[in-house]
């Protein structure tokens, strides 16, 4: 079994209207429940927008704290789920379900080393 990180990439800027968002969240929760019921769900969370993040970085002996986000760009990590799956095909099966709910957001599936 391998743990896979499912990263949800989200374009910066306005989020969908409340009624649209509510439907998405309901469907996403349903997929998460299905993951829990199948025993693949490990951990997951939706994140606040990238402007709320803070970057901590050591340089020489000093540790500098700055306003985030760390990476430039028009898209940032909007949320993630860690699942435990038998192989990539099994992980992709779940990633597909998430992608359908979050259409058109991209889901990056990445194996963990442990």
């Amino acid at each position: 079994m391998t743990q896979y990180l499912l990263s949800i990439y989200q374009p910066d800027g306005p989020i969908p209207e409340p009624e649209v968002l509510e439907k998405i969240m309901r469907e996403l929760n349903a997929v998460n429940d299905e993951m829990r019921a199948s025993g693949v769900w490990v951990f997951g969370a939706g994140l606040h927008p990238p402007e709320t993040s803070t970057v901590v970085k050591a340089s020489g002996g000093d540790v500098l704290v700055t306003d985030g986000p760390y990476t430039e760009g028009k898209e940032h990590l909007g949320g993630f789920t860690v699942i435990e799956a038998e192989d990539l095909d099994a992980a992709l099966h779940w990633a597909r379900k998430v992608a359908k709910v979050l259409d058109p957001l991209a889901i990056e599936v990445r194996p963990s080393q442990s």
Partner: peptide, 14 residues
């Protein structure tokens, strides 16, 4: 190896 691409015939749906 790292991503766990399996050696098997895919799921029926795929």
């Amino acid at each position: 190896r790292a991503a766990g691409i399996p050696y098997r015939v895919p799921y029926e749906a795929d």
